[in-house]
Design a protein around this nucleic acid. Structure first.
Lengths: 244, 244
DNA sequence: AAATCCGTTTGATCTGCATCAACGAGACGG
DNA sequence: CCGTCTCGTTGATGCAGATCAAACGGATTT
């Protein structure tokens, strides 16, 4: 792996407080690799041998059952993913594929497990990291069970706007089909949901969302700190974010 | 709290490996209390001041948004719940109420946080505990997104049967309305789902489920280790189980 | 420039599930 | 013993969202 990656990784909450020696040792054990778009990095059910870190690109975490498939999270740089499976030394519950060309760093799970046993600071970081991940999925599940698909779309748009500093306009950060899957609906239904939100202050031009009436949108979205954040960026719950 | 509770708590994965002194100190700081049925122990959004342990009775974790409400998990003795919020020192994402008369032990979050900073064994236990919780919610979310409500009911029945050693008959462990909410559907729909499963090897007599054709049930349920377990008992993801 | 491909949108239709309403059956209290 | 209450079931209806099919448009290829 590149030497210049290290400071980036070191900035992650998970690796920030551990001892320099242990950090260095973990990095020694790590592999780095670039992957083309749409490549399956992880297949659900396989043993969790590596903690992954996205350095560049975008990764989708998804799950399948029978012939169905759903996106569970989208991970962006710099973040870790599938930490829990590595810790448990258990099979991955989710698959992962690159959305675009991505550079990934892989740390062997056994080194990880060894490290938090001998570095208390790292153990504490792992605890908070996992707690963040946990809370993120709980939010996701709450959204699915408590909101209709229209409301989820509205809440997503409202949330993205707040993240961008209450911007009245922003560009969707991923393909609509992927976003639809993440929000638990079909692309067709997503399309219709947006259209139906025109009367509630949302317009769309290609990949750009324009909020024409924030109050109306807010009324439909019903933003709730206990579902939408701000604890952690929504939709990244497999990841190691929780920024600076 | 009672002296005889300690060994029970000590058996929990979370508290099993920590030093006797630290365990004792945590127990000193703990309160115990009995609550009648249907009492709200925790309201979502409030600061997470205590880790809770159910010693007797049953606790429901649930969440609300606007005028809607959904059950997120059901916790039975002896298990902890809402660990993640305590660790993060953040607001509870879920509410909790007793389902029946219950005895609960409460450990101040700040003692908890102090303890895993000075007891590495406890830190490791906390890590595995949180990883279990995380994976449990991921399973829950997968079930919601990938299965229809009929399939979730079938999978639930199949799962309960396996837990009981492939029993062909068992009694539902909770009110049907609560189970329906947990499975993400209305009581009416749950009722109809079971009825429609008669043609797939499931019969019901009051609270008792009788599996008349395991193969047929299995075919509908499509049990999957990556959704239904056996990692951890499904439906208890807020809890500290994983016991013996 | 024409052809192909893929994501998105739109329309038509179907169905799963919620909702609303009513009823039955146990459980409980007067 | 009889009301009352709550839970569960059943029926009727409506709606949200999935599915199927086709058209559109932008990007890439030939």
């Amino acid at each position: 792996m590149r030497e210049e990656d290290k400071p980036e990784i070191r900035k992650l909450l998970l690796f920030r407080t551990m001892s320099p020696e242990n950090f260095e040792r973990l990095m020694q054990a790590a592999y780095a690799h670039s992957f083309p778009a749409q490549l399956e990095l992880i297949r659900q059910g396989e043993p969790a041998d590596f903690l992954h870190i996205v350095m560049e690109g975008t990764v989708e975490l998804f799950s399948g059952w029978r012939d169905r498939e759903t996106a569970m999270a989208v991970v962006r740089p710099v973040s870790t993913f599938i930490l829990a499976a590595c810790i448990k030394d258990a099979p991955y519950l989710m698959s992962a594929r690159t959305v675009e060309k991505s550079r990934i760093i892989m740390i062997p799970s056994k080194d990880l497990r060894a490290t938090f046993r001998l570095d208390p600071e790292f153990a504490v970081s792992t605890i908070t990291e996992l707690a963040n991940c946990y809370r993120s999925v709980v939010r996701h599940a709450k959204g699915l069970k408590l909101r209709t698909s229209r409301e989820r779309v509205a809440a997503y748009i409202y949330r993205q706007s707040s993240i961008a500093g209450n911007a009245v306009s922003f560009v969707l950060p991923m393909e609509k089909r992927l976003l639809a899957s993440l929000l638990g609906m079909t692309p067709e239904n997503f399309s219709r949901a947006i259209k139906s939100l025109q009367s509630d202050g949302v317009a769309m031009d290609g990949m750009r969302i324009i909020i024409t009436n924030m109050k109306l949108l807010e009324a439909v979205a019903g933003p709730d700190a206990l579902i939408d954040g701000p604890d952690t960026n929504a939709g990244h719950f497999g990841s190691g974010l929780t920024g600076p």
